[in-house]
Design a binder for these strands. Structure first.
Length: 255
DNA sequence: ATGGTAGGGCACCTA
């Protein structure tokens, strides 16, 4: 099973790129973030024509998550205990033997901002939800836009970035509290070097200069670790005309 | 410290 995650930054704009990329990369499952579409406007028919069933939790203008799969995703969850949140950022579903949790983690704006406090609270509640999900479903995959660079290798200029939002110790600790549940950053099972990023700001020709961060992650539960064949970042769509600021990340599982 | 770009939607907000 090949699983992908992509923050498309507007599914309406990126739909042609999504179908083109999927036809080439052939993932069995794709988790999307920042669809920015209310559910009534989700492109169900276009994605069915591309061979994918879809479940989604969207809203107008902001946020929005979706899971596409060759077969209909089951046991869908869009809201978690303790988080009464109108922002559509979480989607859990089961595809085959794998339980997927798609996350669009709060950006946080800046350390100390009220959005930053919301981010830390949100992450703590998601951790508790993931603990329960992992107990219930050992074949757990947690993926999405985490809006946290796990460590300095995941930052193009860690000195300049310092302890700003996306890199601050409380955020990294919140991510560690999630990986401590027995969830492994699949990319780091294969690659130890820095310089591998999944997001580049639209400004300052950041992609051309590889001024990026690795903030899009696919975490796998202990029980799935031995089934992981490959994990990668596919920068191809970031080179296309009118790209998302994020590029897809992928995981190959031998199941 | 600021602003650069992009998307949504039409004045700014979010990233």
């Amino acid at each position: 099973m090949k699983i992908a995650s992509w923050n498309v930054n507007s599914l309406k704009v990126r739909l042609p790129q999504l179908t083109e990329w999927a036809a080439e990369a052939k993932p069995d499952v794709i988790a999307l973030q920042e669809t920015k579409l209310e559910d009534a406007k989700f492109p169900v028919d276009e994605l069915a024509a591309a061979g994918y069933r879809a479940v989604y939790s969207g809203q107008k203008t902001y946020n929005g998550v979706a899971i596409l799969a060759r077969e209909e995703p089951a046991d869908v969850v869009t809201d978690i205990p303790g988080l009464d949140d109108p922002q559509r950022r979480i989607l859990a579903a089961t595809v085959g033997s794998v339980r997927l949790v798609d996350l669009y983690v709060v950006n946080g704006k800046a350390v100390g901002d009220e959005k930053y406090a919301y981010k830390l609270d949100w992450l703590a509640k998601v951790r508790d939800f993931l603990e329960e999900e992992h107990k219930r479903h050992p074949h757990l995959v947690v993926l999405g836009d985490f809006n946290i660079a796990p460590d300095d290798r995941d930052v193009y200029d860690p000195v300049a970035w310092g302890e700003d939002v996306l890199c601050s110790p409380p955020e990294r600790d919140a991510l560690k509290a999630i990986t401590a549940l027995g969830l492994h950053d699949s990319f780091r099972l294969f690659e130890q070097d820095g310089g591998h990023f999944s997001w580049w700001d639209y400004r300052q020709a950041a992609f051309r200069r590889n001024m990026g961060l690795r903030i899009d992650l696919i975490l796998v539960g202990d029980a799935l670790k031995q089934a992981v064949k490959a994990a990668a970042i596919d920068r191809t769509p970031r080179r296309w005309e009118r790209p998302s600021d994020h590029t897809p990340v992928t995981l190959d599982l031998d199941i």
